[in-house]
């Protein structure tokens, strides 16, 4: 008995009472859902063509990876490792687009935000681009780049760039002018002003932009892979669905959700909180 008590106290201390309560409460619906899924498998209320058993979803991974030669083969994207290849191809696209899109969006946003006239012109353009960004570009992208990686990256870049650009612009514009003046009277150059005033001042807004662009971008990527891709998780679920391999579709969907939740919870949300709390900045995306 005492060990259980000690354990419970230790756990409570580790996570904090409130958090523990929330974790346990939050787990209840998941457990219930999993249980219902299990019951459905056992009783076949809905046939496996509609809701596949969990075991077959799990097995789908191994079926897809059947011809994989092991860990290294998966990492080097050997042709046998179908599942990991799709995962890596989606992740790689996100990584590449971020690598290009973030610096571009931030740079353009800062320059535009510092100059009223450029900002005036580009703000509506940003609104417009944001409202057709994502999936509506897809047909044109297919005309330009054909089916494949180039098209999906174009869609992703388009989503990321405009959101980051727009949020950076708004952020820079919200930085009080007196900060620029104060740095300039300390002898700061234009570059000093950019790096020490506008960039940090816009940072909370930039981080929000990054978070938004990741959210929208990930969705857009999945859709783009379905329609204009030849690999990736979106492509996988689309092809599997047309072949009625529901377990592969479920697998893909679960992985898509888990990847996004993981990135958001462990990286983007803490980053956002940190910049805002640390500097006590209030910011308001419009």
């Amino acid at each position: 008995m005492s060990t259980i008590q000690e354990l419970s106290i230790a756990v409570q201390r580790r996570f904090g009472r409130q958090r523990l309560r929330r974790i346990i409460l939050g787990a209840i619906p998941f457990v219930t859902l999993a249980f219902l899924w299990y019951l459905n498998t056992a009783n076949e209320w809905l046939p496996p063509v509609y809701i596949p058993p969990f075991a077959s979803v799990w097995e789908a991974i191994f079926l897809l990876e059947e011809e994989c030669m092991g860990f290294m083969d998966a990492l080097t994207m050997g042709s046998g490792c179908m599942f990991t290849n799709h995962v890596f191809s989606s992740l790689g696209r996100v990584g590449l687009s971020l690598l290009i899109g973030l610096p571009l969006g931030i740079a353009f946003g800062v320059v535009a935000g510092m100059n009223r006239r450029i900002a005036n012109a580009l703000e509506p353009l940003g609104i417009f681009a944001n409202s057709i960004s994502g999936i509506a570009w897809l047909p044109l992208a297919i005309v330009w780049f054909g089916i494949g990686t180039a098209t999906t990256i174009f869609i992703l870049l388009n989503t990321i760039f405009w959101l980051v650009f727009f949020n950076t612009l708004l952020g820079v514009r919200s930085v009080p002018r007196v900060y620029e003046n104060s740095v300039r009277t300390l002898g700061g150059s234009r570059w000093n002003v950019i790096t020490q005033v506008y960039f940090p001042g816009a940072l909370p807004s930039i981080v929000t932009g990054i978070r938004m662009s990741m959210g929208f971008g990930w969705r857009a990527l999945i859709a783009a892979e379905m329609i204009g891709g030849d690999s990736g998780l979106g492509f996988m679920i689309f092809v599997s669905a047309s072949e009625y391999k529901v377990e592969e579709v479920f697998l893909g969907v679960l992985v898509i959700a888990l990847i996004w939740m993981f990135t958001d919870r462990t990286m983007l949300v803490p980053l956002e909180k940190w910049t805002i709390q640390r500097w006590g900045l209030v910011w308001r995306p419009s």
Binding site: L33, G234, V246, V249, F250, G252, I256, M261
Partner: peptide
């Protein structure tokens, strides 16, 4: 809250094939 978060992160488009 957590389960809604989970379902929100599966985009509508991703469940379309299902």
């Amino acid at each position: 809250y957590p389960i809604m978060n989970f379902f929100q992160s599966i985009s509508g488009i991703a469940i379309l094939p299902i």
